[in-house]
Design a protein around this nucleic acid. Structure first.
Length: 559
RNA sequence: UGGGGCGUAGCCAAGCGGUAAGGCAUCGGCCUUUGGAGCCGACAUGCGCAGGUUCGAAUCCUGCCGCCCCAGCCA
């Protein structure tokens, strides 16, 4: 789809691309890239960028590269590059053979720097970091030229070579672009291009002791790869004149940078720095903790690639800084899981029910539908017997008017089973409810004519002797505040941590779940979507993560 | 009080001079052996504010106001 017909369709990025295609700026070519720094795990904000970049390439019949912006060896690790690749693949995107690294271009970048020096557009500076800051000036006052700014070309060349050769200590010299210390845009005040840094790089090892800054490496990396549209976030908007300056001075391919607003979501934090702190302080169980907004965390939580891609489409692309309601994300998983997850019965907080008129040793196998949204999902058999577990919250001794569930003397339907009536409540001496004695109506088994009788509620249940014990992890938002960064002076986002973000329960689940395999999605009827944890749990003793609850109108009525 | 951006509903977001799409949320109703799902309906006389141009302005002009980003040898 190389839309020439409808140039004003779609988001502003597509409009720019359409205009380029109309005027032939890149000969109709669309080549994007996703450029992560391997210094942390990818989060859902990156997912938006991945979907955008790969999506645009696909839509316009172009390509999208994966390029690691690995210009700072002190923060980057292979663990991160591996996780990033896994996450992108899992999301469903393929960079084919186009896996690149900014470090692949270190030699080319060095040559480019030589050209700038020769043309009088860069110089070796001996100011310290602190002095550079002083010389830079302020937002309202222009800066001053470095005393080293007007060195002869030959001297710059010699010095730069010696920087590379390791003749100077870390931090003693830099290579700077010679632009304009009076520029209103601080990025143009002779920015640093190279710093001396003796650090082991995950790919180039100890070959280099000078490393290009991001500002120097990024635009040229895009240019080298023939990128047409360099999509990035808003904070790089004022860097664009600098990137433009570099490629113009170098006379190389000139990509068009387009900036969009990064994704924010309510009740969570998205900066890598903060996510790293949660991990390092052991507030969460690693980068893939199911409460983390990381792709690996969402995966473990039970989110699907389809849901995340759908979400990315729905949040839109614009330049307005925005915070998406987490309800939209939850809506997207529910949509996907509703269509694809098998229904099963699991009792999270068990209360025993004895059917006093049901034969002691009788066991029936009842037919249950796996997914009413998908007939192809078929049926399964669920055992039924005299002793069952139901959800404790599905019984109330003194129910309010709108309560449709079980109460003394009231009838309720057991899903796929019989209609039962509560005859007696058994309590201990402190008044705690131990179990319920109920009668069942033999003529109301699912499928029988009398089963059509109207009853207010239908409960899920598990046969006690057949029940499998399982650990179930109930998650809520990691933060209790819509905007965790909204803190008083002197506090940080951690003050808003939600103390109830994880609750672990021992549940009784139907026997078909005993050997559920990791990462399988289920709907626990009436409770929510749950996914078999891929880190904990063993065959026969599964651990389930609650992905999201079902929409609950009863809970709303109660508020 | 420098420079760069951004203001359309509770949250996102279309709209590009011809009379405010869509989604989420919310609120009603229908349906239902999941209080799920689905279906139907409601939800901006209004587009940050004030002027101006025009037969006609969210769209064009002027002036204000508000919010975000930039003074790393981080990305």
């Amino acid at each position: 789809m190389t839309t020439n017909e409808t140039p004003s369709q779609g988001n502003f990025i597509k409009q720019i691309i359409n205009e380029h295609n109309r005027t032939g700026r890149y000969a109709g070519r669309v080549h994007t890239r996703f450029p992560p720094e391997p210094n942390g795990y990818l989060h859902i904000g990156h997912a938006k960028s991945i979907c955008l970049n790969f999506g645009l390439a696909e839509e316009y019949g172009g390509k999208c590269n994966l390029r690691f912006d690995d210009t700072n060896p002190t923060k980057e690790e292979v663990e991160y590059v591996d996780s990033i690749k896994e996450d992108i693949r899992w999301l469903g995107f393929d960079w084919e053979d186009r896996e690149f690294y900014a470090s692949d271009y270190f030699e080319t970048l060095y040559e480019y720097a030589l050209k700038l020096i020769r043309d009088g557009n860069a110089f070796v500076c001996e100011l310290t970091a602190e002095q550079i800051r002083e010389y830079r000036g302020t937002l309202t006052e222009s800066g001053r030229n470095s005393p080293w700014r007007d060195r002869p070309v030959e001297e710059n060349l010699a010095l730069f070579a010696r920087m590379r050769d390791g003749e100077f200590p870390d931090g003693s010299h830099t290579l700077r672009a010679k632009i304009d210390m009076a520029a209103a845009n601080l990025n143009m005040r002779d920015p640093v291009m190279y710093r001396i840094l003796r650090a082991h790089h995950h790919r180039t090892g100890d070959r280099w002791c000078i490393y290009p800054t991001y500002d120097w490496a990024h635009g040229q990396s895009d240019s080298i790869e023939g990128i047409t549209h360099s999509i990035c976030t808003l904070e790089f908007e004022d860097h664009r004149p600098l990137y433009d300056w570099f490629v113009e001075k170098l006379g190389i391919h000139h990509p068009r940078q387009i900036e969009f607003a990064r994704l924010n979501i309510t009740y969570t934090v998205m900066s890598k720095r903060k996510l790293l702190k949660l991990v390092q302080d052991r507030i969460v169980d690693g980068w893939d903790d199911p409460r983390m907004p990381t792709i690996s965390g969402l995966r473990r939580r039970g989110y699907t690639p389809e849901a995340l891609r759908d979400f990315s489409d729905r949040v839109g692309v614009a330049k307005k800084e925005s915070t998406i309601d987490v309800a939209l994300l939850e809506h997207c998983v529910r949509l996907d899981l509703n269509a694809h997850a098998s229904r099963v019965m699991a009792v999270l907080d068990p209360l025993k029910v004895v059917l006093t008129n049901y034969p002691e040793d009788r066991v029936e196998e009842l037919e249950a539908i796996n997914n009413p949204e998908d007939p192809a999902a078929g049926m399964r058999m669920v055992p039924f017997s005299r002793e069952l577990f139901i959800e404790r919250e599905d019984f109330m001794e003194d129910p309010p008017k709108k309560f449709f569930r079980l109460a003394p003397g009231r009838e309720v339907r057991l899903r796929y089973g019989y209609i039962i009536k509560c005859e007696d409540v058994v309590k201990d001496k402190d008044g705690n409810i131990l179990e319920l004695h109920c009668s069942y109506d033999p003529g109301t088994k699912s499928g029988m004519p009398e089963a059509n009788r109207k009853v207010k509620g239908t409960l899920h249940w598990v046969s006690a002797p057949h029940a499998v014990d399982a650990e179930v992890r109930l998650y809520e938002q990691l933060f209790a505040k819509e905007n965790p960064d909204d803190v008083e002076a002197g506090q940080d986002f951690l003050v808003h941590l939600n103390p109830d973000s994880l609750r672990i329960t021992r549940a009784k689940v139907e026997p078909s779940l005993a050997h559920a395999s990791p990462a399988t999605h289920y709907q626990f009827e009436r409770k929510g979507y749950f996914t078999v944890d891929s880190k904990y749990g063993r065959p026969g003793s599964p651990v389930f993560n609650r992905t999201v609850t079902l929409r609950d109108t009863w809970a709303k009525i109660n508020k």
